[in-house]
Amino acid sequence: SLKRCLISVDMRFIEKSFQGIKRELQAKDTFQNVTVLSILESPKNIKPADVCCVTKHLLTFYRDRVFQDHQESSPQIVRKISSIANSFLYMQKTLHQCQEQRWCHCSQEATNATRTVHDNYDQLDVHSAALKSLGELDIFLAWIDKNHQETSA
């Protein structure tokens, strides 16, 4: 199962890194009525077969947009975000090396699901969107944890 692919990823450590900065990030979020990762909040939105593709797309979303768009002055938050960003990079490499091509087929639904995340992101100015998406890392991490344990080969 996909869990086997991410067996070497220390999810607990990533979650702990995020918990250390979550309150500060979410306190600065001024758009409480918008959820960038809304698609992940309902289990029926994404089929098990699409889990791998959506995971890969969202890791790319964080890598190419969120982490680069966010401007941070607090050294402690910079350090935690760096830790998460590098862990996500490792996760991407692990998923790729795990011969994912057989399971990681990208259906139209998976692509549409990721499109809604980008559309939600684009609704806001880039700094607010990046800050909000960082604050929603707990949604993404919980989704990875849940889906990469229940998915079977």
């Binding site: 890598r63 982490f67 050294p75 910079v78 350090r79 760096s82 960003a85 590098n86």
Partner: peptide
């Protein structure tokens, strides 16, 4: 600087904790 920084934000160096 982790691999993320060296690939995507190469100007960013982080003081050791």
């Amino acid at each position: 600087q982790g691999e993320y920084e060296s690939l995507y934000t190469s100007h960013v160096w982080i003081p050791s904790s």
